[in-house]
Design a protein around this nucleic acid. Structure first.
Lengths: 252, 252
DNA sequence: AAGTGGTCTAGACCACGCC
DNA sequence: GCGTGGTCTAGACCACTTT
């Protein structure tokens, strides 16, 4: 590709006066993206190609790219390159339509992959949530979910076996919601949701194939049935650039 | 202080085998923090002091510090040093008690500073929200809010003057909520809240005195009265380590 | 004035994706 | 096997805070 020949990506020299150098580079790249001046797969030129003809150190280029990544404009695929981010989906934790349904409704293509499912024993933490003795049997489930083939979240779900005996025998690559409802007659009356900006580290970063330390959003949801029993406890880790959370409620 | 003499902060050499070097440094520092091995103001040794005796480049130390910062464990004061982060406050956007009230309720000390207040003309964006013609008069207000003397958010609020004529004449360093209610008899019936992990840039980063590009949380709240009129439109930018969002609702 | 983080350079080697 | 980003070193100078 001509774009990738050894000339600098932008036509004018980068302004060095006044503001920080890496922020100038950021603005140039952001401008090129906004102008749509990119191959249609959204891949940016490589870091070393961005350097050519500029006299700028690679570290400075990378600083600019990190800035754009933090802003959610671009993301990286490990050792592959930098790409323009697709738009985020809107997530409404107070609605009880699942991931598969609201992603589709927004014209995007959802996909779920079950990483593992097994019976576990309640830890102290879980025993407090489910109000069961430590060591009680619980179902646990780990899934990775995709939008348009990009991994956007990993989650660990815990379900009370008393409410859904034999749950793990079902395919859980679809909507857990609808299985609970149609097969077990369990429906959710109340949600408690906690959200916290976080860094993706260790298992979660690995699961999303991102570098440890990238920003993410941690969503913890506890669902109750009409009798106030905990139906489902869910910990999600999202890519920060994949989601907007929207809550629409009466005032309490 | 003895801690700041030219010996390394940890006693054993850092393990180089296996995992990434900067992650080892991260783990060492995280361990020391968890062990409470710090002066009580929470200030870490300087980057150059952390290097001493280790043979580790300053850039690598900084990478470890950035990691901990992204995780919310530490934060920096520009050109002063790195400090251990205080615990976050819980923010419930569906409750209509204001910042001053819920921060106090959590045993922390809230403070509000009004940066400016003035009448503005409705932009296209605002005209759509308030359902008024472009150019209509609106009240706008910019504030910075603190918890225990650390700036944690900046916000810009827009209010419909028809619902609160003369609002800008009042001191707005306290609760806007209670002024609207007690002085103007305006109360909120419904909230629409959007949240998005973001990078703090430009004016918002400057307002919080953080480096541009640090992770933050963008909260946009639109409040309606019982007749469905927009009472207040609020854009907040939070430090990412200062807040946990909690939503507790019935399912719709 | 001394110390701090903030920025930048100019290399080097590595692990891994992609062809 | 080549190109990519990922990691790391060893300096340097600057702007700002702190003392």
């Amino acid at each position: 590709m001509k774009r990738n020949s050894a000339v600098r990506w932008w036509s004018k020299p980068i302004a060095l006066s006044g503001q920080m150098h890496y922020l100038s580079v950021r603005d140039h790249i952001a401008g090129r993206i906004a102008a749509g001046d990119l191959p249609k797969d959204g891949k940016l030129p490589s870091e070393r190609q961005l350097q050519t003809g500029t006299g700028i150190a690679r570290g400075t280029i990378r600083e600019a790219l990190f800035q754009l990544e933090a802003e959610g404009l671009i993301y990286r695929r490990d050792r592959s390159g930098w790409y323009v981010s697709p738009p985020p989906v809107v997530y409404n934790p107070t609605r009880w339509d699942g991931f598969m349904s609201y992603v589709s409704a927004q014209g995007r293509s959802p996909m779920t992959e079950t990483l593992w499912k097994r019976q576990i024993k309640a830890t102290q933490h879980l025993s407090g949530i489910f109000e069961k003795p430590i060591g009680s049997a619980l179902y646990a489930l780990r899934r990775r979910r995709y939008i348009d083939d990009r991994a956007v979240l990993v989650e660990t779900i815990v379900v009370d076996p008393d409410l859904a005996p034999g749950l793990l025998g079902y395919s859980l690559d679809g909507s857990l919601t609808s299985i609970l409802k149609t097969v077990f007659g369990v429906s959710v009356a109340r949600n408690m949701v906690r959200m916290r900006p976080c860094a993706l580290v260790k298992a979660d970063a690995e699961g999303l194939k991102v570098k440890s330390g990238l920003p993410g959003l941690n969503v913890v949801r506890t669902s109750y049935d009409a009798k106030g029993r905990v139906v489902e406890y869910d910990e999600e880790y999202w890519r920060h650039d994949a989601i907007i959370v929207q809550v629409d409620t009466g005032v309490t």
